[in-house]
Amino acid sequence: MASTTATEREGTSRGGGTLYRGDLGMWSWVAHRITGVLTFFFLFAHVIDTALVRVSPQTYDSVIEVYKNPVVNLMELGLVGAVLFHALNGIRIMLVDFWEKGPRFQRAMLWTTLAVWVVVMVPGAYFMLERTLSDLFGGK
């Protein structure tokens, strides 16, 4: 369409109003964006730290050593959660796109996505945080 349309619509009713209380699909789209960006930033850091092994294995080892702390452990858990949601919701979006009945079952598929996410994340969180928790609070 003509670019004039864009200028005409600029600075319109956007500012200051209330938040649009959209469909569940809108929030899943927001979450998809956020988890996507988070995963991208992880990959960015990951490529750098892995590339260090070419520079010197000792540097690489020391960087990996830095990662062994509770805060990074929590971030790892967040990463798994973000990637898992992004992957599951990605499948849902593909089904909405390519499966004839996808749009009709989009909400059911979103709830399924979230259910699978919880089912995987609860034991996942346990196994991922077990060591940190026992180190921190001196279990055993």
Binding site: G22, D23, G25, W29, I93, V96
Partner: peptide
């Protein structure tokens, strides 16, 4: 279209817009 389904929810005529 990012399939947010806001349009389907908003349609006063019940059109399955996203579909």
């Amino acid at each position: 279209c990012r399939t947010t389904f806001n349009c389907t929810d908003a349609c006063p005529r019940g059109i399955q817009v996203t579909k």
